[in-house]
Write a protein that binds this DNA or RNA. Sequence first.
DNA 1: AATGAATGAGTCTTCATTCAT
DNA 2: GATGAATGAAGACTCATTCAT
Lengths: 212, 212, 212, 212
Amino acid sequence: MSLGAKSAKPRILDAAATAFATHGVDQTSIDNIAQALGATKGKIYHHFGSKGELVCAIRKHSVQLTLDRVSPYFEADTPPPKKFHAMAEAHVVAMISELAYHRVVVEEMRGSGTGSVTDSERQLRLEITALQSEYEDMFRSVLAAGIASGAFRDQDLSVTVRSFLMMLHAPIYWYQPRGPQNSQAIATQLADMALGAVAFPHTKNSVATPGE
Amino acid sequence: MSLGAKSAKPRILDAAATAFATHGVDQTSIDNIAQALGATKGKIYHHFGSKGELVCAIRKHSVQLTLDRVSPYFEADTPPPKKFHAMAEAHVVAMISELAYHRVVVEEMRGSGTGSVTDSERQLRLEITALQSEYEDMFRSVLAAGIASGAFRDQDLSVTVRSFLMMLHAPIYWYQPRGPQNSQAIATQLADMALGAVAFPHTKNSVATPGE
Amino acid sequence: MSLGAKSAKPRILDAAATAFATHGVDQTSIDNIAQALGATKGKIYHHFGSKGELVCAIRKHSVQLTLDRVSPYFEADTPPPKKFHAMAEAHVVAMISELAYHRVVVEEMRGSGTGSVTDSERQLRLEITALQSEYEDMFRSVLAAGIASGAFRDQDLSVTVRSFLMMLHAPIYWYQPRGPQNSQAIATQLADMALGAVAFPHTKNSVATPGE
Amino acid sequence: MSLGAKSAKPRILDAAATAFATHGVDQTSIDNIAQALGATKGKIYHHFGSKGELVCAIRKHSVQLTLDRVSPYFEADTPPPKKFHAMAEAHVVAMISELAYHRVVVEEMRGSGTGSVTDSERQLRLEITALQSEYEDMFRSVLAAGIASGAFRDQDLSVTVRSFLMMLHAPIYWYQPRGPQNSQAIATQLADMALGAVAFPHTKNSVATPGE
DNA sequence: AATGAATGAGTCTTCATTCAT
DNA sequence: GATGAATGAAGACTCATTCAT
């Protein structure tokens, strides 16, 4: 097995994410995924205990990926507006870069849940919730800092966070991979919009043109 | 038929919307809806040819309701920023007021669509698309006017429209009916954010407090 | 529909009992039963919520049938040995007469239980347990009376009841319908043996030849 | 290999018997057994060609164990009633002593047998049948001797043997290991009952207390 | 001897839909 | 208008078994 080759699990995850993102979780049968994989149901069930576990694994991966892309900008020592803009931009880039995984997350945002839940699934769900909290807290923290410094408007933080994040998710619904420039442009525009949504007018000027 | 009583169709629609919104379209069987209605499947099939038709009827109702609430503000003779803010606010109020119906729309935003499609369904889908275009065009029009007048930043309109609308949909995921004031506050905050997302800094001040 | 015709539920029950008795519950698929019925799985699931429910319904029917056959002899005003003998005989006749139903009961005596249990199933199980207790109590009562009157040996009642009942179940394993005389002979022999198993020697003589 | 340690095969057999006895043969997967063993399926398949073979091995072991315990009393030079009582007692002790193995036998008494049968399995089945015949013949022989001597009632031997053996199996369904005395008491009571079931009244007195 | 991956056939169950009444 | 019975297609999941290592 060459080094570049993925082992079974990630390959299954990829195929599942793609299928789920394309046709929807409920409209995708395990058989569909197996076919896309050139394998049989059994293979999938050998690695994931249930469909729910598969979905959870994808969700966790998605959140982790986003966290990995955004964290560095959060750690950076920059003033809140600039930091916020960079984080928003990174978020959009994440959305666009691993479209399939993030689509699944958004679809499952309802709360899901047929009935039976595996133990491993329950475990995964807890981990996902933890990661999501960690992620939202980063934004909450920048926003709080911005409000404290007078750069951001003083609004209900919970509403703010959940709302602009929704906006940054938007490309998930309509983005079609065409070229990197295009995607960067989208990321910048959405980051601009997000900053505009939270900042006081005058503050915005300092980062309105990201390439300055 | 007394005036206070709804006829069968709207009652079915309400029950379906609620069930779909709560458990998801795919997780809701016609039987579930029938039970919530205190009736049997047959009754539903007398009024709607298929599950898909039911979903479409809900979607159309949702779009129509939103259109009805937002149009008046679009027709008004107000400058772009003020008009945009009012329309956004009305949009959020719509989302919150008929939560169940709009949730279904968002869930179905993926596009999906299984296989067999009734003729009536096809017809409904066309009507929905038309209404949605009409709706988006209103926003597109205000935005264009705002850009022309120098009040709004000059950005890719398609991206803009689809993005802030997504943000205005946000309450669908987390709003819990508690009281009217609360909902009004949310609507105002989101409209503020949406305006900030599209306008140039200085413009915003003129409408920050819509009721002034 | 003629009067003699059974409605769907009993017919399904019969087919299921026969199939379960022949190949074992676990080796019989719902499909098998449906085929034997000349129908489809759906029909069965329309009348019984799950395989477990079907099994429970059969078990309940079995216990009820036995109870119905044995009760009259329990109610009769006869001395313990004679009463016991008659009840035992009736029990064996029941076993032989509705072989299939009773076979299922014996097979499920382990305690069964995969995992998920319907509510209706839970309900049925309670009813079954109640009927079984009622049934065992009849025998327990005759035995106690017999011991009190000095006709029966004083032994651990729980052990006694569960043991000779097991013996009376025996035909379930090997009886093949051939003719009524044969079956009556078996019933008499087993009742004799059961009485011998519980009575004092001298008592037995009074009823050893039931036709006397 | 140290003396205290069992080699692989018996250990697998024990684990399988326990699992089969607890959850039923059909409800127990090879994986379950492997887990109980702290090993993997492969290990089991190295020692037993198929699940059926495993079941047969357990059954054979069960019959052999019973035979070993009962034979000595059959070989002894004692009058039929005493001999029969001793054999019955030994049978019950066997049931209780290796509960798990014997439970499997009883469960499989239906005969069933799915489809594909290994050669080794066919071979095992023949051996089992032979051992079982040998075992039943011992009882048949004592019974015949007893009838000839006038101690036992003259009844259909086949019915008799299969019936009281069923009664002697009873503890399999409800015995819970608590203490040796208890189990001995049960064995004695059941042997008494069995003797009562086959003997003429007056005969019984001579062996009512086997250890006297 | 033992493992982990993979298979494929089978099983229970659900559900949109149709139809006679 | 409405119901209850019935269907058939599909889907999630299980498991005995095989095989390369």
